[in-house]
Each structure stands twice: as structure tokens, then as C-alpha cells.
Amino acid sequence: MSKTIKATADDIWKNKVEKINSELFTLTYGSVVAQLCRDFHNDYVQVNAQLERMGFNIGIRLIEDFLARTGLGRCQSFKETAEVVSKIGFKIFLNVVPLVTNWSGDGKQFSLVLEENPLAEFVELPQDDKASRALWYSNVLVGVLKGALQMVQLEVDVAFVKDVLRGDDATEIRLKLIKVLRDEVPAGED
């Protein structure tokens, strides 16, 4: 990818982003997930749904912060969106740069592969099979991506495909563009 994107992202990360201790962040997220599991009595489907909702509410606000910090406008193509999300978005907020891979033939689906996941450091899922089959630990990321992209008029279906915590070799999120939403016009103009 071009040097300018990487340089911009590094510059913003170094200068304009307030930093906190990553262990504090990881432990806070961990206790949120553990508490949700306790509250829903280990109904992992519900826990996933809650995490996604929380992520959605975060995402709709995060996108404004992101656009204000970077000064970017709307992306012109889905490919551009993918690059901006992975190289600038993830870099600014989590200091990781996932790989954009597995583009589908029509250019409407792609995967983000995370080599390291700061949300899940030192986490071991409970030993029962249910957890490792049903729980997506970092599901909040799914909600964040959905919410943020919806605010820029892109309706995207986001889901985890693989997770290192479940024993897979990498953490992978799949994004599918469903449609581009229309901007609203004042009554009487249309």
C-alpha cells in the first residue's frame, strides 16, 4: 500500500492519540466479557449479541472521532474502505494493522486477519466445549465495524470466521457489503 497512508497513520498514532496501559484495557474488556457470561448464565449466543450491540454503540461514535482526527472524507470504493479501516482505523485505536485478504470476485467481501489481538491477551476460554464452540470473545469488534460503517452509509455484514482462542491458527473477520444507503434529502426536494 502507498507510503502516505502508512505515514499518516503512524503520525496520528504518535502525536494525536492519548495512550493508556494496554493491560488495563485488556483486563477491563476481559472482566466485561466474564461478567456478561455470568449474567446470562453462560448463554454464549446472548453474550455474543450483547457484545455486538455494545460494539455498535461504540462504532457510531468512534467514526466521528476517527473522521475528525484524520480529516478524511468518504471513501469512493469498498476497496478503499478496506484499506482505510485496516491501516488507519485499527492502527489509531488498537495499534495493530490487520491484513486485508480473501477478496471475493465481485469486490464486495473481504477478510481482516489479525495477527495479534490486544483484547485477548492471556485469555483462556473456559474448558467446556460450549464456550469454545459458541463464544466469539472479541465480538465487540464486529459491532464497532458494523456501526461505524453504517454511519458512512455502508451497510455491511460483519462476522468472525476464526479465532485463536478457539484453537484456530489466526483471528479472521469477514466483511460483506450488502448495499450502499442513500443520503436523506429534505421533504419536498425528492
Binding site: 474488556y29 476481559g30 466474564a34 491477551e121 492471556f122 485469555v123 483462556e124
Partner: peptide, 9 residues
Amino acid sequence: VKVLLSPFY
């Protein structure tokens, strides 16, 4: 200590 850091423990 690493075991203690897992939220499920």
C-alpha cells in the same frame, strides 16, 4: 500470574 490474568479464571 499469566493464568490469573485470564478473565475467566
